[in-house]
Design a protein around this nucleic acid. Structure first.
Lengths: 190, 190
DNA sequence: ATAATTATGTGACGTTTATCACAGGTCTGA
DNA sequence: TCAGACCTGTGATAAACGTCACATAATTAT
């Protein structure tokens, strides 16, 4: 829980009282590799703070897996649309390694947020970070070619390259794994 | 202001008292076509509620314009990263038509939000909608080809196709305008 | 009204990428 | 330890896309 408290306090001022109030909304949980945090068709009622390990979000369309996001330590994974609107999730979130998460329960979180403005502010800031990340990766596709997208990740998010396999990354970058393999080779030679 | 109040109440319960408290943070402003709401290099201290008209966000890289988003009536345009972190914006927001916006001033908004939890909740919900939209368009690129992205817009966001020219749209869809012209032609013939 | 600007369509051509096929390497669980 | 699963590399080929060039609307400004 200590990592989470640090994370929260990096986002917003947060009294010990707010922290105590928040506790009932929190559950620590371990996930095995390949275990689901969220399945397609389910409603997402949780925010998953990643304490250790990492997970990915992916769509499965006509049997083909398309990765849309990776979430590492000190990030929050969720389906923001499903969480906010109560709609069924169109994608899965699955642990890529043994994973420790602290789960925020939606209903309890909203209850406590009504009592403590600091918690409401925390929620806003978590969503803001999430939006910022989405915007960043959304922009990547509009501005850059596949090779430039790879270079961007190398410069700005090297942790992704270190921990995610080429095949998994290719799907995230929107290219075939063969193409990514060739891009990487080209770049080594240049 | 009436549209804005309706918009707010579609998001969250909002008392007349909160509405009155919010007023000092709001300014109505008209923009001419091609006038900037936000310029690259500026810090974004505003949320722009679009009352009438529409605007777009775009990067200008090596003299080439790359559109990253379109914002229509009853949406909020902003640079969420700049607004949240105080960093300089890397992109512009410009009116594509004569535009009426209601501007939320950041500092005043945060002051009133500390007094009224409903306003804090409103902020969270505005950002949530923003995040949902970003995620939606981010996913488009990972799941679909250029033609499929066009079909998606036709199905889910026809208003964009009706109001945005082909050249402008091509940039947003991440293809050359010639390619989009040919895709459209193919689709008419099929 | 008309000139200038902007938007669209289209052909030609080269580049990039996807797809299929297969080989070899690495990891993992019984 | 050994078989099965997954991962990476690479060649061949076809499809998709970008770029340049130019013609023709359509829109805008004066």
């Amino acid at each position: 829980m200590n990592n989470l408290l640090k994370y929260i306090r990096s986002l917003t001022s947060f009294s010990d009282e707010s922290w105590n109030l928040l506790q009932p909304a929190l559950t620590k949980r371990e996930f095995k590799k390949n275990e689901f945090l969220l399945r397609q068709g389910q409603v997402c009622n949780s925010l998953f703070y990643i304490d250790n390990g990492y997970c990915k979000s992916y769509y499965e369309i006509d049997g083909v897996v398309k990765n849309t996001g990776f979430f590492f330590e000190n990030e929050i994974a969720t389906n923001i649309n499903s969480f906010g609107n109560g709609q069924k999730s169109e994608f899965n979130i699955v642990a890529c390694e043994p994973l420790t998460a602290i789960i925020f329960d939606k209903d309890k979180l909203f209850q406590t947020a009504q009592q403590a403005n600091e918690i409401e502010t925390l929620g806003r800031n978590c969503i803001r970070l999430f939006a910022t990340k989405q915007e960043e990766f959304s922009t990547l596709f509009k501005l850059y070619s596949a090779q430039e997208r790879l270079e961007y990740l190398e410069a700005k998010h090297p942790e992704i390259l270190q921990r995610v396999s080429l095949s998994q990354l290719a799907s995230f970058l929107g290219v075939a794994r063969e193409t990514l393999s060739r891009i990487r080779k080209r770049r080594v030679l240049e």
